[in-house]
Nucleic acid binder design. Structure first.
Length: 693
DNA sequence: ACCTTGTGAATTTTT
DNA sequence: TTCACAAGGT
């Protein structure tokens, strides 16, 4: 399999690159589209090399660069590695590049910021005048409104004190203060929203004043990539607003356009379907201006509209925003076997019909099963056995949500317990980022702490870890000689237990009952907290996960922490492996992913566990299968259809050889269309010998 | 009949 | 953060 390529096909493949090169040579902006596994990144790299080889000298003489934009930092690093060191090519994410291009236009950005502040203020005013939440406020006369505003601005501390409190407490605190305006307190939720809106308006107005008075810190706008939200009143903008300001600046000032065009005559954008529409708008504006002033300027988009799986992405709207692009389409597939390609072609159903570049591409298999949730484990086990999976030939299993992936990876209990803590109840969205991010620098405080402990245990418990690697790892914590190392390893070998709590007790005993200074330093550096006893760690967890806890809730909090500590250490190990799965040195026989997180990756053996519902979106895949042949969908229904299709396409096209799907819902209505795509669906049911299960 | 309150359950990813 | 729902109040 995958060994024979006919010269004719190779030549045809080369021709698509020749097409791209000719557009580059004539400075005609283009879009390169191809399905999954076609070698998009390869084409991007080849294009960059072509530009460097052909125009490198000229670019160098004029101090010009090639701009290359990727979707993520990970992709940027990967591309830099593939390209090798190059002075001419600037690879970065779009945010990094845009900020670099606009950050020096300080007064101009402040002007744009003022406009934004005023817009936001009038938006808030509009809401106060229309939205049902603000009716009680709206019905006050002007005098009462001002009185209310003044009272609330004077009582900011009090307001936030009862922000999450029950209705009765809010009444007790604000009832007497607001006795003149009793109606405003009737509905506490609406009261909260009203007051928040008033605070925000006053913050923005304050900011405008500070700018006007040229106060310190108010003469420039800052892009803060660490926050996901704007803090306009502090002159800080976040990701989306950065692109918005960038676009406005470029639209407004011809000089800015000209400087960018002169500095970067070539721009290549990877995964264009996921970048925001504002980015395409920026590029389109630059392109138009370049032709107006007769400058050579080229933009190359690389991507695939059907692989657009994020809502804010450009998706299939590229041509509407950036018109007159030349199009290059590549239909060869270098990844998957014929059986998989047949299926993914039927899912796409557009003009890109893929064909393997290999003459010997048969030998894989695709099957569609339906069954019930209780049989998911049996399904996974069946294929672990059937395909002889091990670390070298792993099984990769996809779930729609992190929560289910966590459950089947064997650490659902950690997810469950953490989601019940006060911290993650308030910041529900934060839990997946802080617990499950593949980028360990993004772990939250407590997940980071847990990670350190598990990382530490994993290193020294695993007898397979070569001593030299342990040595390297320990050097990271504390430098020592080989003799010292042996002593430390011997002591660390004493750590044991079945639950996390056991391990913490074991570690703290070792720490407190031992004179070995090196060992104590290693433990100190690992845990990074003041005092190392079971009680202090317990309190650390309690205070971090239940900040500002009230007395009546103390019992619940203590119980939650105890539950967390009582979880078996193997759960924590499973979690540790889950977030390390992209680390090539970690080889598991089975890996779990969400559909989304597999984008850009490929695996030999793929199992897709498919539920019909996805969050608030009910009836997602059933809807897709039901309307598979239907061309007449419009608006919301079309969006829903494409969402399901794109997700299914991305998931299925990851498979190199073997693909299995287990659909966990009724297929009666959709059987014919499933057969059309995947062949006859098979029922999966396990006959369990154990009567009790 | 309508409104208010409290509660529980749900969410992919990146900058 | 947003929805859905049940319980209780007006």
């Amino acid at each position: 399999m995958f060994s024979k390529i006919s010269p004719a096909k190779l030549q045809e493949e080369e021709e698509s690159q020749i097409d791209i090169n000719s557009y580059i040579a004539s400075s005609d902006s283009f879009v390169f589209q191809s399905g999954a596994g076609a070698g998009k990144t390869y084409a991007l790299v080849e294009s960059l090399k072509y530009i460097v080889n052909k125009y490198g000298n000229t670019l160098f003489r004029h101090n010009q660069k090639i701009m290359c934009i990727t979707y993520t930092n990970v992709a940027a690093n990967e591309l830099r590695e593939r390209l090798g060191a190059s002075q001419l090519v600037k690879v970065s994410t779009i945010h990094e590049r845009i900020w670099d291009l606009i950050k020096d236009y300080k007064p101009q950005l402040v002007e744009i910021h003022k406009v934004k502040l005023n817009e936001e203020i009038s938006l808030l005013e509009q809401k106060l005048n229309r939205d049902d939440n603000f009716r009680a406020y709206r019905e006050l006369n002007k005098e009462k409104k001002e009185q209310f505003q003044k009272i609330m601005l004077d009582n900011k501390d009090n307001f936030y004190k009862v922000y999450f409190a029950k209705a009765r407490e809010v009444d007790e605190l604000f009832g007497p203060i607001l006795s003149d305006i009793p109606n405003i307190l009737k509905n506490k939720d609406k009261f909260r929203r009203t007051v928040s809106a008033i605070y925000k308006m006053s913050d923005y107005e304050g900011c405008l004043n500070m700018i006007e008075n040229k106060e310190k810190g108010f003469h420039q706008v800052i892009y803060n990539s660490k926050y996901n939200r704007d803090r306009l009143q502090k002159m800080q903008i976040s990701h989306d607003t950065l692109l918005e300001y960038g676009l406005t600046l470029i639209q407004k000032y011809d000089l800015v356009k000209q400087i960018i065009i002169d500095q970067y005559p070539y721009v290549l954008i990877d995964e264009y379907q996921d970048t925001s529409k504002n980015v395409i708008e920026i590029m389109s504006t630059l392109n138009k201006y370049a032709s107006e002033i007769n400058r050579k300027f080229l933009i190359g988009y690389f991507g695939d509209a059907v692989q657009s799986i994020y809502e804010n992405g450009t998706g299939k709207n590229l041509g509407e925003i950036h018109s007159n692009l030349y199009s290059v389409i590549k239909t060869f597939n270098r990844r998957s076997c014929k059986e998989v390609i047949n299926v993914t072609n039927k899912i796409r159903m557009d003009s890109i019909i893929q064909e393997s570049i290999y003459d010997d591409s048969t030998g894989g298999s695709v099957k569609f099963y339906y069954g019930v949730r209780n049989n998911v484990n049996a399904f996974i086990n069946k294929y672990l056995e059937e395909w002889n999976c091990d670390g070298e030939n792993p099984l990769d299993c996809f779930f729609l949500t992190h929560r289910t992936a966590a459950t089947y990876s064997g650490f659902g209990d950690i997810y469950e317990q953490l989601s019940k803590t006060e911290k993650y109840k308030v910041l529900y969205n934060q839990l997946t980022t802080e617990l499950l991010s593949n980028d360990i620098t993004k772990l939250g405080e407590i997940p980071r702490f847990l990670y350190n402990i598990i990382h530490f245990i994993e290193k020294f418990k695993s007898r397979n870890t070569p001593i030299i690697q342990i040595y390297d790892d320990l050097q990271f914590y504390e430098e020592m000689t080989f003799v010292e190392l042996q002593e430390v390893i011997k002591l660390l070998g004493q750590i044991n237990g079945t639950t996390l709590g056991d391990y913490i007790i074991s570690i703290s005993e070792l720490y407190n009952e031992n004179e070995n200074i090196k060992l104590r330093k290693i433990i100190d550096n690992t845990l990074g907290i003041e005092s190392i006893t079971y009680e202090s760690i317990y309190n650390y967890l309690l205070n971090s996960l239940f900040p500002d806890i009230k007395e009546d809730k103390y019992k619940n909090a203590e119980e939650a922490i105890s539950n967390l500590l009582d979880i078996d250490i193997s759960s924590y190990e499973n979690w540790y492996q889950y977030i390390q799965k992209d680390n090539p040195s970690v080889k598991e026989k089975i890996n779990y992913h969400t559909y989304h997180s597999t984008k850009g990756l490929e695996f030999n053996n793929v199992l897709i566990i498919m539920e019909n519902n996805f969050g608030t979106q009910k009836d997602l895949f059933n809807f897709y299968f039901k309307h598979y042949d239907n061309e007449g969908l419009e608006n919301d229904e079309l969006i829903k259809f494409e969402k399901a299709r794109n997700l299914l396409y991305v998931a299925c096209s990851r498979a190199i050889k073997n693909l299995r799907i287990l659909y966990l819902d009724d297929i009666a209505e959709i059987k014919d269309n499933i057969t059309e795509i995947f062949g006859e669906p098979l029922e999966f049911s396990e006959i369990t010998k154990n009567v009790h299960s």
